[in-house]
């Protein structure tokens, strides 16, 4: 009961906070249009070459990539870094609740506030490219949403673990910059895993990247989901969680010695 009441309070307040920035939300929703750029390139390539996906399948794939990215976007490393540098973490440490409540509350509320803009952009996409229209089954929809939730949790915990570096350096977000290289090329944002060479794909599937984008996307497009699609991100989640908790404990001692 306490948990639900607390969750409700955080979500309602941060939803109100996000609505203050509604115009920025539209810009952020538009700014994440890299999948549409990739889509254009791959549809053109599929018209002329031999690829495992047809042009219209590339269109659907990158549309769903856009959707999954809208659902799983995370920025906690920048926010945490700012809170450390500005000393905003101290008041939160004085409250009897883990500061992560504020970050999770902000992320979840932002998702709800962003949803209308995402729907408009998707509707606009189908107006421009009606051949790509498709209606997923409810099982595909549930699988995609569940895997997107797992992807978001994994992404959040990983980035929150990176954020702990802010206790030692003022530029913890540079770690995220390095991570983005792997994310960009191995997650499926730039190219579907289906077009990777078999050997490369097998290796990449042991990293966390494909489970952040490619796997949830394929779930909505009807691809079968295997146990591995849950176990490998689950294992990475466990590793990230342990790393985050250890770094948090060491970081607090460090923060204390910096003067909090």
């Amino acid at each position: 009961m306490t948990f639900l009441r607390r969750a409700r309070a955080f979500l309602e307040v941060y939803y109100a906070y996000m609505l203050v920035y509604r115009s920025e939300l539209l810009l952020w929703a538009l700014a994440m249009s890299l999948p549409f750029i990739s889509m254009g390139a791959w549809i053109k390539a599929a018209d002329t070459g031999a690829f495992p996906l047809a042009p219209v399948e590339f269109g659907r794939y990158f549309l769903v990539v856009y959707l999954v990215r809208q659902l799983t976007v995370v920025w906690v490393v920048w926010e945490f870094e700012y809170d450390i540098v500005q000393g905003r973490l101290s008041p939160r440490l004085l409250q009897p609740a883990d500061p992560v409540w504020h970050y999770v509350g902000g992320h979840v509320a932002e998702r709800a506030a962003r949803l209308p803009f995402t729907v408009v952009i998707v509707a606009f996409f189908f107006m421009l490219y009606p051949e790509a229209w498709f209606v997923p089954s409810w099982t595909e929809t549930v699988a995609c949403l569940a895997l997107s939730l797992l992807a978001w949790v994994l992404r959040f915990v990983l980035q929150y673990a990176f954020a702990m570096a802010a206790f030692w350096t003022e530029k913890a977000s540079s770690i995220e910059g390095l991570w983005q290289i792997g994310f960009l090329f191995l997650s499926g944002v730039v190219a579907p895993l289906a077009v990777f060479p078999e050997a490369v794909r097998e290796v990449v599937l042991y990293t966390p990247f494909p489970y952040l984008i490619d796997v949830p996307v394929r779930a909505l497009l009807g691809a079968p989901i295997t146990l591995r699609d849950v176990l490998i991100p689950g294992a990475w989640l466990l590793v990230a969680l342990v790393a985050q908790r250890l770094a948090w404990r060491a970081g607090l001692a460090r923060y204390s010695s910096m003067g909090a």
Partner: peptide, 16 residues
């Protein structure tokens, strides 16, 4: 960016 009343709601939930 919000009225103080919203922050008070978070306080109320955090302090039960």
């Amino acid at each position: 960016d919000l009225p103080a009343g919203d922050s008070f709601r978070i306080h109320a939930a955090v302090y039960r």
